[in-house]
């Protein structure tokens, strides 16, 4: 019912009013997602700044028992998934449906792999008694990586939805691009978290 009034015929002023073309819808989507990501940057920025200040103040303690090798592999997995996401968008733009499906599937699998390795890490740490209640560093560690893992999970769900509804994604390839913007952001957050939590 709400679409009836929006199908009025074109007039000179119409071009900016209604997103009838893919280009306009893509532009709107991009502007929206960038504002959303700006807000996300402030969310993780708040957490990261709190952690850095606590660390500098000596309140956060050490990170010794963390498994750097697993986390390094995980970093590689997540970075690779950003590459496959770009390939998925490129395939979608060229109308290459099998290619898009393949690269989306790899991206989803990489996301799931990242989460699996994260669960493996968590269980090892908890088994050794490093629970969230263990003190300053562990409070931050679980909260920051947990919130990041939640973002990875949301990205996996979004990418899976694109994979399942591949026909719609081919018709509107900008949707793959928008999902990609979010996915790269999640990736970049990890690039900050990994050295801050594991290496310094």
């Amino acid at each position: 019912m709400e679409d009836v009034a929006f199908r009025a015929p074109a007039s000179p002023g119409q071009s900016r009013g209604e997103a009838r073309t893919g280009g306009e819808a893509a532009l709107r989507g991009k502007i929206a997602i960038w504002w959303f990501l700006a807000s996300e940057i402030m969310l993780f920025g708040g957490l990261i700044t709190s952690f850095v200040l606590a660390r500098l103040g000596g309140a956060a303690g050490t990170h010794e028992p963390l498994n750097v090798t697993v986390a390094a592999v995980n970093t590689f997995v997540l970075l690779t998934s950003s590459y496959t996401m770009v390939e998925a968008f490129a395939a979608a733009e060229h109308g290459n449906r099998p290619g898009m499906r393949f690269f989306l599937a790899v991206t989803v699998l990489a996301g799931l792999g990242f989460l699996g390795l994260k669960v493996y890490e968590y269980s090892g740490e908890i088994a050794h008694g490093f629970t969230p209640g263990r003190g300053g560093f562990w409070s931050f560690y679980y909260t920051m990586t947990g919130l990041h893992a939640l973002h990875v999970l949301i990205g996996v769900v979004v990418n899976s939805a694109l994979l399942v509804m591949a026909g719609a994604a081919i018709r509107r390839p900008y949707r793959v691009e928008l999902a990609g913007l979010y996915w790269h952001f999640v990736d970049i957050v990890w690039i900050f978290l990994f050295p801050l939590l594991y290496l310094t």
Partner: peptide
């Protein structure tokens, strides 16, 4: 949009302190 992020972070931390036993804001837990 630009100011609410840190408070969401704080709210998550406060909720973690209340239900997961973390010690962001409690002096006796550091």
């Amino acid at each position: 949009l630009l100011s609410v992020g840190p408070l969401i972070a704080g709210a998550i931390m406060l909720l973690m302190d209340r239900i997961a036993g973390t010690g962001f804001f409690l002096p006796d837990r550091g």
